[in-house]
């Protein structure tokens, strides 16, 4: 018997990250901006997508991959507005690149300007998984409480934008907008922050304009490279 220690020193997710990077690269080349929407359950990811689909109708070509543990309720809600494919994880607490690749194939790999991936409602596990997105967008609703960013540092640290949702409810809640933003910026100073209500559509035009700009930036960066 010979005892040997083999030095590996590698991120165990390296292979998945490479697959995610390849997906990102593929969609970059065809000018599709990929957004990974993450939040707690009930923050309003689907409602935000409905509002975006209505606002950007006729302006951008969009598609959605929506993840849930069970049911295709979100896909049914979104289908009248936007091409959508439901990813049902059967219990897994997060999406992974393999599910995204499958969903993208099922969607028919259409020519899109923006592909939204609505992740499983969970502020923990999805933070550790690269889905091939260009941007990670965290949603935080006024009904959740303003102390959430500090409690889930990885999610907010790995996000590029923060969308506050349900701001129409602010008059009825103790949610302090400034405290939430300060908490989030301590973790990720570069966050682009938006205030929205999918019900009243307040803030939706600004958010959608930002999405258009981000998509244009991607196209410009692909052309120059």
């Amino acid at each position: 018997m010979t005892k040997t220690t083999i030095r590996v020193n590698r991120d165990i997710q390296a292979e998945k990250r490479e697959r995610a990077a390849a997906f990102r690269e593929k969609l970059s080349r065809q000018g599709t901006l990929v957004l990974n929407l993450v939040s707690s359950p009930g923050t309003g990811k689907t409602a935000l997508l409905e509002a975006i689909a209505k606002e950007l109708k006729g302006r951008l070509r969009m598609g959605v991959l929506v993840g849930d543990l069970a049911t295709d309720r979100d896909a049914q809600r979104l289908a009248p507005l936007i091409p959508v494919e439901q990813l049902t994880t059967g219990g897994a607490c997060h999406l992974e690149i393999s599910l995204v690749e499958q969903g993208w194939q099922k969607l028919g790999e259409p020519e899109l300007d923006i592909l939204f991936i609505e992740n499983i409602g969970n502020l923990v596990c999805p933070a550790s998984h690269d889905l091939g997105e260009h941007m990670r967008v965290s949603l935080l609703s006024t009904t959740e409480g303003d102390d959430k960013p500090g409690k889930y540092p990885k999610m907010f640290r790995t996000s590029d934008a923060l969308v506050l949702t349900k701001i129409d409810l602010l008059p009825y809640l103790p949610f302090r907008v400034e405290a939430a933003i300060e908490d989030a910026r301590l973790i990720q100073p570069d966050l682009d922050i938006f205030h929205t209500s999918a019900i009243t559509t307040e803030g939706i035009p600004d958010w959608c304009e930002y999405l258009e700009q981000q998509r244009q930036k991607l196209v410009a960066s692909v052309q120059t490279s």
Binding site: M1, K3, T4, T5, V8, S128
Partner: peptide
């Protein structure tokens, strides 16, 4: 401090 790394693996082999 943000990754999950496999550092090394110690094995026995039969010569």
């Amino acid at each position: 401090g943000d990754a999950f790394r496999l550092l090394d693996v110690t094995i026995d082999t039969e010569l």
